[in-house]
């Protein structure tokens, strides 16, 4: 395995004429948490999907744990993924759902069951493990999704909004779990809107806006760049606003014919 768990070079995804992700390059060291921030529709989910081979990039390359994203068969053995909508079957119980995921990973039932019991207990779900997921609250369903993503001990785990819908105690459990994963040399790619979590856990924060990575730095450095006050929210708002303003200015200039199409400035 290389020193970098995630390497992306010029990743681009185009839907028709629209760039969902544009020339994105990443280099994330192994055993770290990468906080991935961005406004709604900025390209976070598309980026994650490209990194785990669920969506084919229009251009660019990437490697996860040393495996090119074009080699899905090998890639699947190294990654764990939690989409924003927890991937569960409502008709199954939590235990059945997790056993299903374990089987998809080729883990024998007896080995899976002991691990399922431990994780369900850790997330406070053991007492409800024999109830159908359709009777679960949003938070409980989310927990099942998180367990399923981490269950097989992947090298790299990509979490899309892992704490949304969770109560403070459950959110704390997730934060502790992520912190614990890193001590085991797991790399976490964490996409979320909840800034304090990223502030607390991330080694590096990347901010994507309108498909482009507009800022990338450790939390303290990013905060110190904020003009108004040194906090992550201000930094995030300024970085994304800066980009929006630049786009608007560029659009005005283009409309007035002042610059050509190659005149896009790089804020990063």
């Amino acid at each position: 395995m290389t020193d970098h768990a995630i390497i992306a070079d010029g990743l681009t995804k185009q839907f028709g004429s629209e760039h969902a992700v544009n020339d994105l390059s990443l280099s994330i060291p192994q055993g770290t948490v990468y906080g991935f921030l961005g406004p709604n529709g900025a390209g976070k989910t598309t980026t994650m999907r490209m990194l785990i081979a669920l969506t084919e990039p229009t251009a660019g390359t990437a490697q996860i744990a040393g495996v090119p994203i074009t080699d899905r068969a090998r890639l699947t053995q190294r990654i764990g993924y939690l989409p924003a909508e927890p991937p569960v079957f409502d008709e199954l119980t939590a235990w059945e759902q997790l056993r299903h995921v374990a089987r998809l990973h080729g883990i024998p039932d007896d080995e899976a069951d002991s691990r399922i019991e431990t994780l369900l207990d850790r997330f406070g779900l053991l007492a409800d493990a024999d109830k159908r997921i359709e009777s679960y609250s949003t938070g409980m369903t989310k927990k099942v999704g998180i367990i399923a993503a981490l269950f097989h001990d992947p090298d790299v785990v990509l979490l899309d909004e892992p704490t949304s819908g969770l109560d403070p105690r459950a959110a704390r459990t997730v934060r502790d779990t992520i912190a614990d994963l890193v001590t085991r040399e797991m790399t976490v790619f964490l996409s979320t809107h909840i800034l304090p979590i990223v502030d607390e856990l991330a080694d590096t924060i990347g901010v994507i806006n309108d498909g482009t990575l507009v800022a990338e730095a450790p939390p303290s450095e990013l905060k110190s760049q904020a003009d108004e006050s040194p906090d992550l929210e201000t930094a995030f708002l300024e970085v994304t606003a800066e980009r929006d303003t630049t786009n608007a200015e560029q659009s005005q200039l283009t409309d007035s014919g002042a610059i050509g199409s190659e005149g896009e400035p790089h804020v990063r």
Partner: peptide, 17 residues
Amino acid sequence: QGSTLPTLLTAPARGRH
């Protein structure tokens, strides 16, 4: 597979399974 399709596609289970 509904919402669990990403789980299936990112798991080592193959098409034949």
